[in-house]
Amino acid sequence: MIEVHSSDDVGCNYTEEQYEQKWVELVNGYLKQISNAFGFKEVTQACDYIWLEDLEGLLDSKKVVAVGECGLDITGRPSSKDFEKQKDILGKQAKIAQQKRLPVVIHCRGNYDTSNECLRCLTDNLPADHHIHRHCFNGSYAEYIKWKIAFPEVKFGISPFLLNEIKYPQFRVLVCKMELRDLLLETDAPYLPGADGSTGSPLLVKDLAEKIANPHNVSTEEVARITTDNAKKLYKIKEL
């Protein structure tokens, strides 16, 4: 199984020296089985547009398979100006992804309106056949269908939210309605904990596959095979 997780975003909280060191370690491809994705998310007015030039350079480095995470996030209650800048930066990153023919990893946190704004930013800047990964998707069935109609190649990341049925009972119902060909397995480790509250780990992909298998009436191995194929096609990964 492939654990799908984009690298930490090119953030504005680093000093220039920390920024350079952090990405030198990643872009040189020291770990052969790890591929990189670079992008901005949760931007504020303090973020300088010059960082987009740095991003374009990073996307030309070794083993880069996507632009992201990038997207919209209102959980920190951004000002209207900050939110407008988020949308502007997202649109610019989408254009870069189109130019470089790279998939986009979307971080979208908020409500249904946030999702609609995010989708509008993408439809304004990307063709309908562009590859998109909705990272840690936990929206509604209506939202799932709306994104599929807009971007038929979109894939939805299923995260450890699925393992916590007490806190997220509606998520299991949603996943049961989704098609396996639309799903990716991801843990967002170490940020999302396991069902028992333990620190998140990429090993949780096995638990996710087992949880998805039963309601879809297939084996765990079949879920692993299908979601791995989905990830390979989305990110154009030829060999593991």
Rank of each mutant, 00 (worst) to 15 (best):
residue 1 M to Y: 10
residue 1 M to V: 14
residue 2 I to Y: 15
residue 4 V to D: 05
residue 8 D to A: 11
residue 9 D to C: 14
residue 12 C to K: 12
residue 14 Y to Q: 14
residue 16 E to T: 09
residue 17 E to V: 11
residue 17 E to R: 13
residue 19 Y to S: 06
residue 21 Q to C: 07
residue 22 K to M: 13
residue 24 V to D: 15
residue 25 E to A: 12
residue 25 E to Y: 09
residue 27 V to H: 12
residue 31 L to E: 15
residue 38 F to R: 05
residue 43 V to A: 11
residue 44 T to D: 14
residue 49 Y to P: 13
residue 50 I to G: 15
residue 52 L to D: 11
residue 52 L to T: 11
residue 52 L to I: 12
residue 56 E to Y: 15
residue 58 L to T: 14
residue 61 S to Q: 15
residue 63 K to F: 15
residue 66 A to S: 14
residue 66 A to N: 10
residue 67 V to Y: 11
residue 69 E to W: 13
residue 70 C to R: 12
residue 71 G to N: 14
residue 73 D to G: 11
residue 73 D to T: 13
residue 74 I to W: 08
residue 75 T to C: 14
residue 75 T to W: 12
residue 76 G to W: 15
residue 77 R to C: 15
residue 82 D to E: 15
residue 84 E to N: 15
residue 84 E to C: 11
residue 85 K to F: 10
residue 86 Q to R: 06
residue 92 K to I: 05
residue 94 A to F: 05
residue 98 Q to V: 00
residue 99 Q to M: 08
residue 99 Q to W: 03
residue 103 P to T: 07
residue 105 V to G: 02
residue 112 Y to N: 12
residue 112 Y to P: 02
residue 113 D to T: 10
residue 114 T to H: 02
residue 125 N to W: 04
residue 126 L to M: 02
residue 126 L to W: 04
residue 128 A to C: 00
residue 132 I to G: 07
residue 135 H to D: 03
residue 136 C to R: 04
residue 137 F to T: 01
residue 137 F to D: 04
residue 137 F to W: 06
residue 139 G to K: 02
residue 141 Y to A: 04
residue 143 E to S: 10
residue 147 W to Y: 00
residue 147 W to S: 04
residue 149 I to R: 03
residue 151 F to H: 04
residue 154 V to A: 10
residue 159 S to M: 00
residue 160 P to T: 05
residue 161 F to S: 01
residue 161 F to M: 07
residue 162 L to Y: 06
residue 164 N to K: 14
residue 166 I to T: 09
residue 170 Q to W: 09
residue 173 V to Q: 09
residue 173 V to N: 08
residue 174 L to K: 07
residue 174 L to Y: 03
residue 180 L to E: 03
residue 180 L to Y: 01
residue 182 D to N: 03
residue 185 L to V: 06
residue 186 E to C: 06
residue 187 T to R: 02
residue 187 T to I: 06
residue 188 D to N: 00
residue 197 G to E: 03
residue 201 S to T: 12
residue 202 P to T: 01
residue 204 L to I: 00
residue 206 K to H: 09
residue 207 D to I: 04
residue 212 I to H: 01
residue 212 I to F: 05
residue 213 A to C: 06
residue 214 N to R: 13
residue 218 V to R: 07
residue 219 S to Y: 07
residue 220 T to S: 08
residue 220 T to N: 06
residue 225 R to L: 08
residue 225 R to Q: 08
residue 227 T to I: 05
residue 228 T to L: 09
residue 229 D to V: 08
residue 231 A to T: 03
residue 233 K to S: 13
residue 237 I to P: 00
residue 239 E to T: 11
